[in-house]
Design a protein around this nucleic acid. Structure first.
Lengths: 209, 209
DNA sequence: TAGATTGTTAATCGATTAACAATC
DNA sequence: TAGATTGTTAATCGATTAACAATC
């Protein structure tokens, strides 16, 4: 198993496409269909499958039900995963309401914020005080978190999360967080992503003149 | 200029770090400082600079003011860029309020939504009807957009944006959008990113047992 | 001068793409 | 059988890392 990271991301997308296709009553799908849906090539689709030992039928593509079962297995989509969000600002609250997570089996069980006005223990996912962060993670054995706090408190928050037992985070704070080797961080730097789009758009324009 | 995409993203991060350092009164910075801040190596920092012709002083690092000027030039950070957001749901509204964009010189000038309850022409960035999308882009010569609509309407919305003159988008809809070659799309698939974190966390756990 | 740092060229690594073999 | 499709091995490409030369 050599190339992995990118392939895994695509496997999740193949899975989503499979689920949607199943709803439409499709029973089998070709590598070309996956490729078209994802904007990639059928070669890459089959390569990805091959890496993870997923196989189809020559001349007949992939059986939807069968592949879905295999994919769920490979992607470890077994039980629901509990997730907490630290920071109940714009981003944090938007993610709380984001349907995609629920669909992906990711359940947001609590938010945390040190602004007492934002706190609400009775809310559907409760918004708790930061002091409760460590205890909550520990008691509920949470392994996944989202960091949606300003950059100056992000590292501090992460340190608590790590101590309490979190194993991986999605980080929206625009800062490179420090964590142990076996801890997984996925940086989502919205500002820089949009700035870079602006940059590449300007570059494209220049090229044509 | 061979490697570019990743380097550009880092250049924007170097710039942010420079701005923060300047505020702290720093006058010069070493490649090691950049590396530490970004979680990369000084070799990569210097390589990135070298690609874009940015130079420092042997033994004395980089002068903050000087490098910042050069970086702004390279990254084309001249005038403010106007941005529109299509979709005034959770994500769309959160992005509207996101400070990072403003700091990066990206001004959100309007949102669009086909839900009349969400619309509000008088709001600070107005929330307009989808029917106004084409005209608004066209009249205001907008080049940058954010797609934050459900996946089933994303392609339709993009088609209008392209026709009206948008040149690049940040896409939050979980679908591979079709666009001409010289159009720039940056996909932000939150669901898949978080799912993949869950996956890698589970993988790490398995490895240790 | 010696040491620390920048800057560039070469080597390696990881991911994608191409070529082609297998087979239904 | 011929054609379409899967699946794997090899080649290429792009990005990172290492080696080292330059110099303040």
């Amino acid at each position: 198993m050599i190339l992995v990271k990118q392939s895994v991301l695509r496997l999740f997308q193949y899975r989503d496409f499979l689920i949607r296709s199943k709803k439409l009553g499709k029973e089998s799908i070709f590598s070309d269909d996956f490729a078209e849906n994802l904007g990639t090539t059928s070669i890459q689709v089959r390569k990805d499958f091959s890496i993870f030992g997923l196989s189809g039928n020559k001349r007949a593509g992939y059986k939807v039900d069968e592949l879905l079962k295999q994919l769920n297995d490979v992607l470890k989509k077994d039980e629901k995963q509990k997730v907490i969000i630290v920071g109940a600002g714009n981003i944090g609250k938007a993610l709380m309401k984001y349907d995609g997570f629920r669909e992906g089996g990711l359940e947001i069980v609590a938010l945390f914020d040190n602004d007492s006005k934002a706190q609400n223990e009775k809310a559907k996912p409760p918004v708790l005080a930061l002091e409760q962060l460590y205890g909550f993670i520990n008691e509920n054995k949470i392994e996944l978190g989202v960091i949606a706090v300003p950059y100056h408190s992000a590292q501090q928050v992460l340190d608590i999360m790590i101590l309490a037992g979190i194993k991986g985070v999605m980080n929206f704070a625009p800062i490179a967080l420090k964590a142990p080797k076996n801890f997984y961080i996925n940086d989502m730097n919205l500002k820089i992503e949009l700035e870079s789009i602006a940059y590449f758009v300007k570059s494209l324009k220049k090229k044509r003149t």
